[in-house]
Design a protein around this nucleic acid. Structure first.
Lengths: 340, 340
DNA sequence: TTGATTTGAACAAACGTTTTCGCAAATTTA
DNA sequence: TAAATTTGCGAAAACGTTTGTTCAAATCAA
C-alpha cells in the first residue's frame, strides 16, 4: 500500500521550500518569479512522487470546496436523471465536482439534504425544489451560497432560476388540440403548488378561454404514474368523456395509457393524448406520443453558467430565465374535424 | 451574510475547552466522562450558534472523507440512472455522500475520472467499468481504496463485484424462445469484451447447442440504440430471417423496434423480440416487451453493503456475487408452435 | 562605489477539526 | 487519614495546504 505523497515530500526531494513547491504546483510560479530551473525540478519531483493534492487541506485553507450540490426530487425519474447527467458533465468542465442529493419530492428530506450537504462547504447549489417551501433556500442564499433553481422555482423571490416557459408551452399545446377540433379537453396536472404546474394550468385555461371553450377539466395532483392512472379512470367515468387528455408529465401520461388500455380506449381514435416532456422511449410506445419537449440540456447548461458567473465573478444579481419549449408532433392526437 | 460558527465559538460561548466541545458533539461524551450538565450547555450553545461542522477540517484530521465515488458509463442510460439513484440513497444511510463520475463509456474518461476523484480522499469507490482495462482499478485497490465493481466486472481478478447472473439469465431466456418453437434465433450483443456480454453470449450459445439448434446468429457490438437498429436492418436482409431476436439491452431493443417498424415487420406476429433489462416504459410500448429483469436494486444494496464492510470493518477479502435474474413474460414473444 | 531595485525563495501563521497525553479535583478504599 | 482510583476536563500537536510577510543575493542606476 503505497504511501500518499504530499507537498512536504516534494519540498524535501527537490530541495526547495514548501512555499515554493505550492506556488509552482498552483501555476503561480510567474507571479512569484520562480525560476524556470526551479519549476522544472519541482515538477519532476511531483511527477516522480505521483503527487495528488489533498483537496481537503486545500479547501480548508482556501474555504473553497470546488464542489457544488445538485438536489433533485428523484434520480429514478428520467427527466431528473437527464438533468443530473448534464449538470454533472457541465460542472466537471470547471474542474468542480457535483454531489447529488435526492429529496424524493419530500420537503423534509430536501431540508435535511440541504443541511447535510452544506457542511461540505459547498461553493454553489443547483436545486429542483420540491416546491412547497423556500425559507431554507433563502437562508442558504443569505449565507452567501450561490444558488439557482431549475425546472421548479418560486415567483417573486430573489432566487435565480432557469426553467421552461411552461405557460407558453401549455398554451400552444392546448391550442394545438383545439385546432385539431377538440372541444372537450381534460388536463391532468402535477404537484399543484409547483410553479411549472401553475403556469401550465394557466396556459391551458387561457387557451381554452381565448378559444371560447367552456367544456374543460383540470384535475390531478401529482407528477406520478399513479395519479395519471387514477385520474384517467375517473375521466372515463364521466357522463361526457373528454376527446383529448393533456398530461402534464411523462409519468402522468404513462398512467393515462395504462388506464386507457385497460378500458379499451384507443389512442388517438377514441381519445387523443398529449404530454409534457420528451423521452426517447416515447417514440416506441403505441402510438408515439405527441409532446411538449423541454430544452433540458439548455436549461442545465445555462443554469451552470449562471451559477459559475456567480461563484467565479461574484455576479450575484438574480437571473430569471425561461426557455421556449417545442411541440413535437407524433401520432397521438387525432384531428376530430376530419373523419377517421 | 451570517458568519459560520465553529467549534471554537462554541467553546468560548459555553466556557469549555475545544476538546470537550469536540467530544460532546461527536457523541463521545460518555467515553470521556463528560457530565450531563456540560453536555447540555455545549449542545445548546451549538444549537444557538447554528453550528455545522466543517467536513474539510474534520476529514483533513481524520484522513477520512466520508465520500464514496460512483462511476458509471452514462447517467442518461436509465439502467445506470437507477443504479445511481439506489447507490446514492443507500450510501446516504451511512452518512456518507456519493460523488458521481460519468465515463461516457470511454476508458480514457474513466481513467481521468478515477484520478480526479481520488484527490478527494475517497473512502471507497463503486464502478461500472467500461470494461476494456483494469490496471488503473487494481492500482487503486493496491493503494488501499475499497473498490467494488457492479454490473460489469473482470473475471479472475481480485476485485469484488456484484452483478446479475448473466449466463443463467441469457440461458433461460433463450430456452424460453426455444420452448416457444423458435429455431432460428438471432441475438444482438453489446460491448464485446464486457463480462456481462460475454456471459450472455455463452448462455445464449449453450442454450442453442443444448437444444440442438444450429441456426443461430450472434451479432452486434454496442449497448446502443444505433447498434440495435443497424443489426436488425441487416438481419432482415438475410436470406432466412430469424423468427426471434434477443436484444442484450433495452437500448438495443429500442433500435430493433425502430428497424422493425420501418420494415413493417410485426412483433410478435412476424418476429418475436426479447430483451435484457426491465424498465417502466417497457410496459407501454407495443407490444409490451418480454424481458430479463435484473435485480438492480438488490445489486446496488449488496454492493454498498460489501463496500462498507470493507470501509468500516476492514473486511478486504474480495467478494464475488451473482444475483438471479427474472424472466418477465409480456407480449413480444409468439409461440410459433401454435397457429396465430 | 553606494544605494536602490529586482529576483528568487523561505518562514510561519492560519484554516477547523480530532486526539494523545496529562492533570487537578473528587471520591473511594483500606 | 493516606493512598488509590475515578471523574471531568484541557493543552497542544497534528492533518496538508495557501499566503502575507520577510529577507538575502543579485542586479541595476547614478
Amino acid at each position: 500500500m503505497q504511501q500518499k505523497s504530499n507537498i512536504v515530500d516534494i519540498a524535501e526531494k527537490s530541495g526547495f521550500s514548501i512555499t515554493t513547491v505550492s506556488r509552482v504546483l498552483n501555476g503561480k510560479a510567474d507571479k512569484y518569479r520562480i525560476s524556470k530551473a526551479t519549476q522544472q525540478k519541482i515538477e519532476s519531483a511531483a511527477e516522480e512522487l505521483n503527487y495528488v493534492p489533498n483537496e481537503f487541506a486545500r479547501n480548508l485553507r482556501t474555504g473553497k470546496s470546488k464542489t457544488i450540490a445538485l438536489i433533485v426530487p428523484s434520480l429514478k425519474n428520467p427527466f431528473f436523471a437527464e438533468i443530473a447527467s448534464v449538470v454533472n458533465v457541465e460542472v466537471r468542465k470547471y474542474n468542480y465536482i457535483t454531489i447529488i442529493g435526492d429529496s424524493d419530492d419530500n420537503i423534509e428530506n430536501e431540508k435535511t439534504e440541504v443541511m447535510h450537504l452544506s457542511s461540505r462547504n459547498l461553493d454553489g447549489m443547483i436545486i429542483v425544489p420540491c416546491g412547497a417551501e423556500w425559507g431554507h433556500l433563502e437562508r442558504m442564499r443569505e449565507k452567501g451560497l450561490p444558488l439557482i433553481c431549475i425546472d421548479r422555482y418560486f415567483e417573486g423571490l430573489d432566487l435565480s432560476f432557469v426553467s421552461s416557459d411552461n405557460y407558453e408551452g401549455a398554451y400552444s399545446a392546448s391550442k394545438y388540440l383545439i385546432e385539431h377540433g377538440h372541444t372537450s379537453i381534460a388536463c391532468i396536472q402535477g404537484v399543484r403548488h409547483s410553479t411549472p404546474n401553475i403556469q401550465r394550468v394557466r396556459g391551458f385555461v387561457d387557451a381554452m378561454i381565448n378559444s371560447g371553450i367552456t367544456s374543460y377539466t383540470v384535475t390531478g395532483d401529482a407528477f406520478s404514474e399513479q395519479n395519471g392512472y387514477l385520474e384517467t379512470k375517473l375521466l372515463l367515468r364521466q357522463k361526457v368523456r373528454p376527446t383529448a387528455i393533456f398530461a402534464f408529465s411523462n409519468t402522468i401520461a404513462m398512467g393515462c395509457i395504462k388506464a386507457l388500455k385497460e378500458e379499451k380506449v384507443k389512442v388517438p381514435e377514441d381519445i387523443s393524448l398529449l404530454t409534457f416532456d420528451d423521452n426517447p422511449y416515447l417514440n416506441y410506445i403505441e402510438p408515439p406520443l405527441t409532446c411538449i419537449s423541454q430544452p433540458v440540456e439548455d436549461i442545465c447548461k445555462i443554469a451552470v453558467k449562471i451559477l459559475f458567473s456567480n461563484i467565479l465573478e461574484h455576479d450575484t444579481s438574480p437571473k430569471h430565465v425561461l426557455l421556449k419549449t417545442q411541440l413535437k408532433v407524433k401520432a397521438s392526437v387525432r384531428n376530430v374535424g376530419r373523419p377517421l
